[in-house]
């Protein structure tokens, strides 16, 4: 625990916290193989249980990175406390930003889900929705992705340290796809691709690997979901399939949830 008394000229304190998630996003921090040791000299990684036994559960932080969605009451309480103790709170990844893949349970009967998964359902207590961090506390920056991209993570940390706005673009995956010179899988192969409405950041990975984008980075700024749905239908994608595509990794994001609901309605 940092005793403020004789702290050397304050290295900013970083905390990494986890709610409901797969750990992939915080792993991205350990995955900054070339930068990790340098970063640890610039910032005091004061709480990062996945990487260190030196923890500071109740400490104060200049920057808190929060991974995961809120899907149990105790997580909500923990989150409120993290917010209180952190100057800047940055959500990392789709779970924290839009509820994550586990938000697929939203709108479903959770007690029935519990029965489906657990041998003895009586021992399970959980909230019936998986919600993003911003549904509970104010968030200073949302870093998208499932998982987040390591370069973007470093950019956000650097920008916060240096005191500038992170250079992260809210454009479509198509922009990255085109910069990389990929052949558009939608146009050239008729593959359903969500790229036109999805937030850039991954480097257009799916089209690079000959498949349509499935939306890890969530909706871009002003996503034209209805227009894309209409176009994909022209290409023969049925409503039920469209609904599933929007209700996936970032299905908890309002723009995608709404489009999915519209398609589900149409399907019924």
């Amino acid at each position: 625990m940092g005793s403020e008394a004789h702290a050397p000229p304050a290295r900013p304190r970083l905390g990494v916290f986890k709610l409901a998630s797969c750990d992939g996003c915080q792993l991205t921090l350990i995955g900054c193989e070339d930068e990790l040791l340098a970063l640890s000299e610039k910032v005091d990684i004061a709480h990062f249980p996945e990487a260190s036994s030196r923890t500071d559960v109740h400490g104060r932080f200049d920057v808190a990175l929060v991974e995961g969605s809120v899907s149990a009451e105790w997580q909500r309480e923990e989150l409120l406390s993290i917010r209180e103790r952190s100057k800047l709170l940055v959500t990392i990844g789709a779970c924290a930003t839009s509820g994550g893949v586990q938000a697929l349970r939203n709108g479903k009967d959770v007690s029935e889900f519990v029965r489906a998964v657990y041998a003895s359902p009586a021992y399970i207590s959980t909230l019936d929705r998986s919600t993003p961090v911003s549904a509970h506390v104010s968030v200073d920056y949302e870093l998208r992705g499932c998982p987040i991209d390591k370069h973007q993570l470093l950019e956000v940390l650097t920008a916060l340290l240096v005191g500038r706005r992170p250079a992260i673009r809210d454009e479509s995956v198509c922009m990255e796809c085109k910069r990389r010179g990929n052949v558009c899988v939608l146009v050239a192969h008729g593959e359903p691709c969500l790229g036109p409405v999805v937030h850039a950041g991954c480097g257009a990975l799916c089209p690079r690997f000959a498949r349509g984008c499935y939306g890890c980075f969530g909706p871009k700024e002003s996503p034209a979901t209805a227009a894309l749905a209409a176009r994909l239908k022209e290409l023969g994608v049925p409503a039920a399939d469209l609904a599933r595509r929007f209700r996936s990794i970032s299905g908890g994001a309002p723009a995608f949830a709404d489009e999915a609901a519209k398609q589900e309605l149409e399907h019924d």
């Binding site: 198509c174 796809c177 085109k178 558009c184 036109p196 034209a224 209805a226 227009a227 176009r231």
Partner: peptide, 11 residues
């Protein structure tokens, strides 16, 4: 209502 504002055209 049809445009996706994806930027493919300008790219």
């Amino acid at each position: 209502s049809r445009c996706l504002a994806c930027g493919s055209c300008t790219s």
